[in-house]
């Protein structure tokens, strides 16, 4: 149904220490990546509650990207391990509710890897474009 999806919207929750810094690095390195993401910076990926992700999807975001430090490299030592469990829960609930859990992606992107950030954003945007608009986007009574 979606064909000319320049207005595909992806909400990205990025941790302050790694993935947001990687996004910064991608910017200062003048790397181009798809303009479809809207970044929300959080101090740690474990701050991201399943409710945030579900709200984004129910309110019509086409995709949700969660970025954090690689396992073992968390600024707070173990926040991303907790985050992984929360995202697993969010994905499972989305699946149970028939919301496409494929619209949720968890990526570990270290601070030094600007190119990886650009790559993940491009790849995920492409993936969401293939899935098309989130059906909830037009749903008024949700």
């Amino acid at each position: 149904m979606a064909n000319n999806e320049t207005d595909i919207k992806i909400v990205a929750f990025l941790c302050n220490w790694c993935t947001f810094t990687a996004a910064d690095l991608a910017g200062t390195s003048r790397l181009k990546y798809a303009p479809n993401i809207r970044i929300v910076k959080v101090m740690c990926s474990s701050r991201i509650e399943p409710v945030f992700i579900l709200k984004a999807l129910l309110d019509g975001a086409d995709g949700v990207l969660i970025g954090g430090c690689a396992p073992g490299d968390c600024h707070y030592s173990k926040g991303n391990f907790y985050a992984r469990r929360k995202i697993a829960l969010a994905k499972t609930l989305a699946e149970s509710a028939g919301l496409d859990s494929d619209r949720i992606r968890l990526s570990w992107i270290p601070a030094s890897e600007g190119p990886k950030f650009a790559h993940v954003v491009n790849e995920f945007t492409e993936h969401i474009k293939n899935l098309g608009y989130n059906p909830a986007r037009r749903e008024v009574y949700i």
């Binding site: 391990f81 907790y82 992984r84 469990r85 929360k86 697993a88 992606r105 968890l106």
Partner: peptide, 16 residues
Amino acid sequence: LPLLAYAENELEEFED
């Protein structure tokens, strides 16, 4: 409670 615990190697199917 599952959300108050973790294992270092688990749930890899939920990562990209």
